[in-house]
């Protein structure tokens, strides 16, 4: 590849927001957790549940799932969702014995048309570095404890490629409609920091 190594800065307002947010957090004027709670409230307002619809479709339609794993950008576009900056999507499938987790070492790289707003922890340095160096420890902190023999694959998003985890469909959901299934799919399960609990 040609020597084009640097990262294009985000738009002017996005930089101003980063400037303001980093200053307010550093000065202790706002609390990261409080900010996260507000953002979580609105996480579904950008790309409302789009990723969940993609996952639910893949669970009920084997042909769609195959297309999704072959060419996620096209398969996601079938449902009417697309990347805003022309980035390509890659969907990675969780399987028995294999767990995928997505990190974004560049904070601007998040598939928000499908996943909504990036949570603050996702953009924070500890997650970005530790998801790569100690994914099992990070997953533990999210309450996801995997057996020692489960392989963990860490996918590092970049400006051109954004990843989405296809979580395992929980047991006991055979009779559910696609909408009911979509309602179970959490943001964190599509980042890989959560698993979907089987219905009680």
């Amino acid at each position: 590849m040609a020597k084009h190594e640097h990262t294009a800065p985000p738009s002017d307002p996005a930089l101003r927001v980063k400037a303001l947010e980093s200053l307010l957090l550093e000065k202790g004027l706002i609390d990261a957790k409080a900010l996260d709670e507000i953002i979580d409230t609105y996480e579904n307002k950008v790309g409302p549940r789009n990723g969940a619809a993609v996952v639910a479709r893949a669970w009920v339609d084997a042909d769609y799932k195959k297309r999704l794993l072959d060419d996620a950008t096209a398969a996601i576009a079938e449902l009417g969702f697309s990347g805003v900056q022309g980035e390509d999507m890659v969907v990675v499938e969780n399987l028995p014995g294999l767990h995928n987790i997505v990190v974004c070492t560049l904070c601007s790289c998040y598939p928000w048309p499908t996943l909504g707003l990036p949570p603050v922890w996702y953009k924070a340095a500890p997650y970005r570095s530790r998801a790569v160096s100690d994914p099992r420890g990070v997953l533990d902190e999210f309450g996801v404890s995997l057996a020692d023999d489960v392989e963990i694959r860490v996918w590092d998003s970049n400006a051109e490629l954004r990843y989405l985890v296809l979580p395992e469909r929980p047991d006991g959901t055979d009779g559910m409609s696609e909408d009911e299934l979509a309602a179970m799919v959490t943001r964190d399960s599509m980042i890989g920091t959560g698993v979907i609990q089987a219905p009680k």
């Binding site: 985000p10 738009s11 307002p13 996005a14 927001v17 303001l20 947010e21 307010l24 706002i30 609390d31 409080a34 900010l35 507000i38 953002i39 609105y42 307002k45 950008v46 805003v84 998040y110 928000w112 707003l117 990036p118």
Partner: peptide, 15 residues
């Protein structure tokens, strides 16, 4: 919101 920075600006104001 149409982009994340808009929601972040909104959330910062509320916070």
């Amino acid at each position: 919101f149409s982009e994340p920075w808009q929601a972040e600006a909104f959330a910062m104001t509320v916070t």
